[in-house]
Amino acid sequence: MQRPLPPRLSAALGPLLALVLAACSTAGPEPGDVRPPAAPTGVTATAGSASTVHVMWSAATDDRAVTGYEVYREGRKVKDLPATTLMTDVTGLAPATPHRFAVRARDAAGNVSLPSATAAATTLPASTRDHTPPTAPKDLRAAPDGSRAATLRWTPARDDTGVTAYDVHQAGVRIHTVPGTATGARVTGLRPGTAYAFTVRARDAAENSSPDSGTVDLTTAPAPGAPPNTAPTGLTATAAKGGEITLTWTPPRTGAPVTHHELHLDGRFATTIVWGTEPPTGRATYTFPVTDPPGTRHTVTLRARLPDGTWGDFSAPRTVVVR
């Protein structure tokens, strides 16, 4: 026959017994994210000057999401970058010196991938007396490569000591670099059915950059089932002394007059252009003031209001410098 516990002992053990029973009946927490991302692929390294190397790679994959990348030189981490960045310049290097680079991907739980394959590059010999920039690349051409990439071609630039790299710019921002021996580049990571504007600059070993090439516009192929592109076309932007910028463009064909356009400056909404009379049927013109000091660079885009009241696609961007 089992004897009952004394009252004091029973009172003391009661809460403890309740905790034990609760722990046994409650399921443990779900395991956290312990799987690291895959190692980045397609890593390349290109010497751009006597002290810089341009490193690029393809996006890594993860069972949840890649949140950043780490760039290593000779096994030492030299850069921490967000997941949206797939290239970087490693600077401050010694001239005429070989270097080896690798990239690792990181996720939100702090898991880090294995290192990528190594890419090697040798910085160029130092040249302190070269102050002459290359000529601008000519005859820039662009063709869509599906809905998320584009292929660019150009005629080589000239330089008194030699072109070492070509930098591809989109809306005034460098997005790609290729060696000075290249006459073309494939740009990836674009959005379907989107208008882009590209320019190219040549660079020499002393980091002298050429003027921009001519601008080339390109619209990527739309996603399957997407409606036709509704972006304004042929946008030009010119600056006049005194802080005025004049835009000209051709409104999209929507089946009805386009009465409203939305102007974005440097990626932010600036104003809505509303015609006080009958909207133009051909080229449209709009002039607006800016208060920035001369030399300030702006990027301009437009989109039209469609007959159903929604806003259409953005035009290819244009860069303009305040005078």
Rank of each mutant, 00 (worst) to 15 (best):
A108R: 14
G146Y: 03
P4Q: 02
R64W: 09
P144T: 08
G28I: 01
G42Q: 10
R268W: 02
G276F: 01
T151M: 09
A221I: 11
A221S: 10
A171P: 10
L17G: 15
L114S: 14
L16F: 12
D204G: 04
A150N: 12
P257S: 01
D159E: 10
L17C: 09
L86Q: 13
A284P: 13
V216H: 08
P6F: 04
I175W: 05
T164F: 01
T287F: 08
T287E: 10
V66P: 09
R141C: 03
Q2M: 06
T122S: 14
T44M: 00
T230R: 05
A109R: 04
A197W: 03
R303N: 11
R191V: 12
L302K: 00
V187Q: 07
M87E: 15
D204W: 05
T123N: 10
P95Y: 02
E74H: 11
R191T: 14
G75N: 06
S147C: 02
V322S: 08
V43I: 07
G225Q: 03
A221M: 11
G180I: 05
D292M: 01
A105T: 11
A18E: 14
A150F: 05
Y286E: 10
P279A: 05
S10Y: 00
P134C: 06
F314K: 09
E278F: 01
A316V: 08
E207I: 03
A221Q: 12
T299I: 04
V34I: 11
A22E: 13
L16K: 05
P252N: 06
A50F: 12
G172R: 00
K138W: 03
G146F: 07
V258Y: 01
M56I: 05
V163S: 01
I245Q: 06
V66K: 00
T287P: 11
G225Y: 02
V66N: 01
G214V: 12
A205I: 03
K77M: 15
A117N: 11
T230A: 08
A83W: 04
A120W: 00
L140I: 07
R268M: 05
E278N: 10
V112T: 15
Q2S: 13
D212M: 02
Y166E: 13
L140G: 12
G267H: 01
G234E: 11
P224V: 00
L140V: 15
T254W: 01
L265Y: 00
